[in-house]
Structures are given as structure tokens and as C-alpha cells.
Design a protein around this nucleic acid. Sequence first.
RNA 1: GCGGCAUUAGCUCAGCUGGAUAGAGCGUUUGACUACGAAUCAAAAGGUCAUAGGUUCGAAUCCUAUAUGCCGCACCA
Length: 613
Amino acid sequence: MVETIEKLVRAALAEAQSAGELPEFEVADLGLERPADSANGDWTSTVALRSAKVAHMAPRAIAEAIAAHLPEAPEIDRVEVAGPGFVNIYLSVAAGNEIFRTVREQGEDFGRSDLGAGQRVQVEYVSANPVGPLHIGHGRWAALGDSLARVLDHAGYEVEREYYVNDHGNQMNTFGNSVSARYLQLAQIMDEKGIDAHAAHEALIADWAAFVSDEADEHPESHPYMDAFRESLGADSYGGDYIIDLAAHFMEADGTRWVDADASERMISFRERGYKLMLEDIRQTCDDMRTSFDVWFSERSLYEKDASGTSAVDRAFARLREQGYLYEKDDALWFRSTDFGDDKDRVLVKADGAYTYFASDVAYHWNKYERVDHVIDVWGADHHGYIARVRAATDALGYEGKFEVLLGQLVNLLRNGQPVRMSKRKGTMVPLRELLDEVGADATRFTLVSKSSNQMIDFDIEAVKRQDNTNPVYYVQYAHARICSILRRAAGVTAEEAAELGMDEIASRACPIDCDLSVLIDPTETALARKLGEFGDLVESCARDRAPFRLTHYAQELAGSFHSFYTACQVLPSEGRPVDEAVSKARLAACDAARRVLALTLSLIGVSAPERM
RNA sequence: GCGGCAUUAGCUCAGCUGGAUAGAGCGUUUGACUACGAAUCAAAAGGUCAUAGGUUCGAAUCCUAUAUGCCGCACCA
């Protein structure tokens, strides 16, 4: 439709110029927009405002000239000049209603665009270290990254979803040592108290809980094991209760045979097996969040030597060295990232010979460009300071302009307005898995994706859990369920039969695709058509601006348009409310179109569209 | 000290490339069910767009300061 309008306005401009009413001038952009207020037309052009200067004419006069020469077209009802010089174009009702048929014909492909032109884009998100369960913040990156991936796909990109598993650094040993220390404590408790592994597990958890609730540390006697644990490992420890659970798991499985084993062997065994268990837990949680990944990329793989005896990290270093971006200083190997705008140069290999996290990332990001054209990393706002150095690395490797970070602000977890205390020191953290169990994936995802990524989110568990009109996700889902109910009734299908047939089949039984739509003339019907017509542009804008949150707003607006239509227009004839059969059919088509776009919008943000609630 | 994000209605947020009377939900107030799903609808009240300058036909939007809040500023990951 935009193309049609564009052509008509350009024709009008040319006509007005050749008629001598306007001077000759070129316009690159007609400034076509959809007015916020439908009273100002279905489309508006600001071309008169834009070209006032170059034409040396009052914008209003230019607008009048263009409006006067706008060619006749079946799509156009009328054109008006308004305000300082807007050219407002009103579509004919019949043309606007065609959107209902278009939606029904295109189904899930409605709103697809070729914006991406098949460009291969990788979205990397979540990528939490495999040393603990996911928390609410990861939930936001999951919702954001997954929704973005879905939107990019709909906008014509070839999308790869990736999870980077940081299984190489120090934190892995910290993790292994933490489990190991807890295992030894379990053995100690079993020995001292003469109880079994299960009872010892409970005792250690009780000790941990006492520590957590002892805010001012006034009762050290209530948590001796936690204190001993922290004293032996210091800052290089993970204090969470899940570490105790892992240790107990190994005690149940292996018994006490690791107590006298070599400390290093014990740590490695627990580290590797714990890693597998944690990764499995993370996968499960992502699954519960309805997100999946095409690639789980292991950091360790970057250090594996190939046939030529070099690793990906070696090769990345060699490449940077050839280009003269590496140098030695203070026994460390540095990357000259300041050449690419970073604040300071960065260390790749430390004086002790160990590789930094950044070293992995240089090789990792190079690897990405062997697979895709463009990279979007979804990171938490606390990693902001890390962007410049990775961009420096990708620039140095020759991928300038192809590296992008989508930064998401942090999430505050609340319950009834009170902050839920999460402390790394204390090891208290609400796992995302538990949140999903309590509030459900639909409400969680909708809430986490519903704000612009650079806006902080206060996630109040009780508020998100509430199943009433204060929770927008149910407003949208209710509209969908309501439509399904009407369609079932129209098709004479019971709920049981509906499950087998599927809504698309039911809808086509309720109303044929080629029914006459011109009978839909109520303002709420026109408004609904108009709202559906916005979807295509919306998808493109969400993809272009990496802003899937707009879909949640649109879903609410579309649900609102439907509810208004439903209240104003009787769809099925009933006692005291007769409806002409042709009108009823056309309204069913409108209902079906609304249903499909509601479901499509929800699917792009990973929220289900229930057929009944 | 340097950098990023935020600041818009009582609350939570939209406002896309600078455009028309700054919008929505919640909350408040008032109406609407013997009717296709009331988890709904219709309507009202509610705003010095943090502050001060600047740019221009036009600024919530761009620029420069200032204030407040959050997050960063490792040879950690």
C-alpha cells in the first residue's frame, strides 16, 4: 500500500509542476507516515513541509497544489490538506477491508518482509557460565534474544541462535573446588554425627539457611560450616545452596570414596560432572522459557589443537600479530585496542601465562564471522565496558560495522513491592526455573520483553503472577480465546472436535475466504482493519531497531481494537440481535484475521495463544 | 574523575526519520450484561515531557551544561 501511495503522490507532484503551479524541485523523501490520529487520514505526507524552503513557497500552498492533482484511484477515498501543510490521504473503506482477506490467505507468513534479504545474522544470548542456575536477569536476555531472533527471521534474515558456554576459565576451578569443599563437609558431618548422606545434606542446607538469615552476622554459631567453607576458599568460592545439592548428589552416587582421594582428581571429577549437570539444568530452563539454540559453543574448543598443532586462539593471535597489533610488556601479551578507539590496551596472555577471557573472545568472534555475516551479542548492562575491546578486536580482524551489542538493562526482582534480596556473597539467588514454576512462562516472557531494552525492569513476582485485568498478557490472550470461541460456535464445532480440527480449519468452515468484505462499514471495523495493516511496518521496525518490545504494545492495541469491534458489532445472529448473513460472514472473516495476527504477534515474543482460558 | 542507561499523568511505560490537540495500561470517578466469553466495553478527570540555555518554520525527540537514580571503569569471568 505504501508503494501505491508513494506513486500517487509523486504523480501529483509532477502534475502540479508541469501545470506550473509548483516550481521544479526534487524530493528524495515524501515523508509518508501513518498519522497517530486516524482523523488525520490513513496516510499523510509531509512533503510540503519538507520542500517549503527549496520551493520558496508556503507549505500550505504546496500541499494544496499536490492535493488538487492527486490522480483518481480505487484505493483512495479522498485527500485533504490540514494543519501547516499535511497532505492527508483517506483510503476507501473497501480497500482497507481487503487486509482481512490478505491476513487469512497469508496466515503465518503475514507481515513477512525481505528487509534482511537473507543476510546471515547470529544472535548470541544468555551465555551464562555453566557453574550455577539461570536467574531472572538471564531470563530477560532469553526473552529479548529469542524474541529478536524470531522477529529477524520474520523480517527476512537467516538467523542463527547461539549460546556461548564459558567452560574454560578460572570459574570452572572455583566451581569444582566449591563442590569439593562441600563434599568434604558432608563426609565430616556424617562421620561426626553418625548420620547418612541424606541427613547430612539437610544439616548443611540448614547451616546455609541460618547464614543467609543471619544478616548482621550476630549468630556465627548457627552456621559454622558456611563460615569454614568461606574461610577455606575465600572469594574463590560459590556459596549457593545448589553447590551443596551437587555435593550431596555425588555423595549419594559415589559414597565417601573421594574423601581420601587426590584433591586435584576429586576437584576435576566434581567439576566436570557438575558442569554437565549445570548445563543440563540451563538447557532445561531455556526450554521452559521456550527458547532453543542452534549452537552451544564451548569456549574450550577454542583451545583444542587441530591437525596442524594450532588452536583457534593461536590462529587469532597470529593474525593480529601479522598486522602488528600485538606487543609484549611486563611479561604479558597485549592487544593494541587503543588503535580502534578503546580506552586502553588489553591483555591477552597474563604474566603467569594464563589466557584472559578476552583472549577467548577474540578467537570466538573471529570464528563467528566464518559462519555468519553479522553478529548481535545480547549482554547485560554491567558488561557495557567490555564492548569497546571486542569491537576493537572485530575491527582489527576486518569485520568493521558487523559487530553489534544489544545491551539490556538489569532486572530488579520484587515481591509485593519489596526487593528480593539476591547476594553473590551470600549465595542467595532465585533461580529462573523456580520463577517459571511460580508465575508461568507466558507472563514471565511477556513482562520481560515488554520494555525497551535500555529501560530497567522491576519484576514483581506477585504482580506478574496476578491473573486479572492488571496483567496485560491475559488481556491479549483473552481476546484470542474469545475469537476462537466465536469461530467454534459459528462452525458448529465442539471444543473437543476443535482440538482435532485446528482453528484454521474451523475458521474456513465458519467463513469462506472469498466472502464479500465491503459490508464492513462500522468505525470499529475500519479501525480493526487499520490496526492489522500496521503489522508489516511493525515487524520491520522491531527488526531494524532491535526492539521486539513494540510487539507487546501492538498486541494490546490489536486486542483492544478487537474488543471494541466485538462490543459494537454483533457477529453471530442471536435472539434480539439479528445480523444479516452477509454481514455476519464478513465479520467472521474480520474475527479470523484478528485471531491470526494476535497469534502471530504472540508467537514472535514466544507467548502462547490459548484457544480457551 | 571517566563512560553507559534512565528521568514524560498518582503508578508502570510508549512516543520509530524533529511535525498536527504529547498517547496507552493500571489506579480514581461515572455509565453498560435476561444478548455471540464482562479476564470486556463506553466516557471523564489527570501533564511547566527533570532543570537551564541553544539549533529552526517547528523540539519530549537534536546540541551544551546542571541535577537525581542505576550500572560499569582488572594481567576476574
